[in-house]
Design a protein around this nucleic acid. Sequence first.
RNA 1: CGGGAAGUAGCACAACUUGGCAGUGCGCGUGGUUUGGGACCAUGAGGUUGCAGGUUCAAAUCCUGUCUUCCCGACCA
Length: 567
Amino acid sequence: MRLKNSYFYTLREDNKEEDSVSGNLLVRGGFVKKSSSGVYMYLPLGLRVLKNIENIIREEMDASGAAEVLMPALINEEYFAKSNRLGSFGKEMFKLEDRFEKKYTLGPTHEELFAVAASMKVKSFKDLPFTLYQIQTKFRDEARPRYGLLRLREFMMKDAYSFDKDEAGLSESYTAMFNAYKKIFGRLGINYKIVRADTGKMGGSLSEEFQAITDIGEDTIVLCDKCDYASNIEVCSTIIMDTESKEKILEKDLVSTPNAKTIEEVAEILPEANNKLVKSLIYKIDKKLYLVLLKGDSVVNEDKLARLMDANEVELASEDEIKKKVKTEIGFVGPIDINIPVIMDNEVEVMTNFVVGANKKDYHYKNVNLSDFNIDFKGDIRNVKEGDSCPECGGKLYFKKGIECGNTFKLGTKYSEAFDLKYLDSENNLQPVHMGSYGIGLGRCLAALVEQRNDENGIIWPISVAPYKVAIIVIDILNVDQMDAANHLYNELRDLGIETILDDRDIRPGVKFNDMDLIGIPIRITIGKKIVEHIVELKKRNSEETTEISIFDVIYNVQDIIEEENI
RNA sequence: CGGGAAGUAGCACAACUUGGCAGUGCGCGUGGUUUGGGACCAUGAGGUUGCAGGUUCAAAUCCUGUCUUCCCGACCA
């Protein structure tokens, strides 16, 4: 691309609406432009990056043996009714009606349609296995889009679905896809971790996520300092190291704790109870109130709570609901003589002589023990904490933040049963197909790369996805020698299939350097005064070093760099 | 969905409290001086102040409604 007479712009100032480094750089570099909340247009540079990511994904999917299809975005709601997901996806779906008032949704995901497509082929066990995929736009009515391209309402996704005759077949297909994913993320140049995750509303038996490690990530991932354990905090189980207390069990004791409504305030009044505080939260679980007990410094994991109670809806009860049912004020609620069922976290079980609310304003009990109250349910309902023990090896756990760029699910037979996707086995029995589903968010990959690869001057693209691999900067476009050399070089690179920008704009060199740094072109060739000696400058975006080389050698150098750095 | 903030030139913002010619910086056009890391001087262009109503001799400014955007929370493959 010659910049003169091309659609190219950059913004000098930060964009105040962007709340992420990647969003800001992508907007400033003219890669994307927001059109409404959570919806962006891809401009020429951004589209080139997106296409590069798409091509890498497509190559690896094809290599894995999957076949590409394209599903509609406009989907009759009936399909989601059939799989019983109108409720579970519910508010996240964009809904619309046609002129006959038939209900449609803009597809947030496509398990349903893929199951239908598969049913066209699947009759007998001989028709299995196979894998289909598409690269297509998804729509989700996110409550709060944010972080540039990281949480969008309209976004590109690659989704793949495998179809097998049994669990063993599914495992094979799953592994094939898993390996393809490793290749994809490797080629994209993303620094990632694979973690265990919740199967959530997709259902199924196994889910793993490909998480790009960056501080802005919305997921907390748990890693072990000894083994290679890696898990999303959603599903990381806590283990209680047996800290058998030698302490003598004491008699419970009412103590005055005026105005101490939070754990911190109670800790101030009762400093001797440090590490002995137990908090009581009132949760509404499928419309019924429960008291949830856990150690003062722990955090409830609502997913685990939902699993323990086999519930769909788990939320903190509102103040009104609590007042109606429980007579105490929030802040002094406790498990002793409470009129709602008690759910206790495992961690509390090994505690002795602890402090809880007394169900009486301005009072707590200290020296409370398990025998002082009823326990209706017990389980692992909290998040692990940094420093907790690894559930696999007992090492110490630590946290990182991640962006979920890809995921893989073993779905099992949930959708095949809903859509009657069955085959005849060799004994002439009808059997449900075993499905797997595999997603990659393209925009997320793009944004995650920018989050991971930037400096004070802008983006640093890896060769594999860079919109252009080389930028030729002409210092003085009025100088015939410089311009001739640049044109010549540009044509040669182009003929070799190396995507190149020729900055032939009549502006000061500093602006050109800054622009090329901002948009992250990996290789820069500067053509200046020394062209009369046939010397040009070569610089890589990810290095400070500038080398002067002969213009006759520059192409070989460029090819070397591309070969070296393109995985 | 709850709480908060903001919409004025392509971008960032001022003027609003106390109603009286629509302003600054960046960017953009033209001329000149410059010319290897976001130049300087001069001179211009660019606005239905988000939209709709109301109050007033007069509204960017006050009032009502509405739309949009952002932040915190809730929510979230």
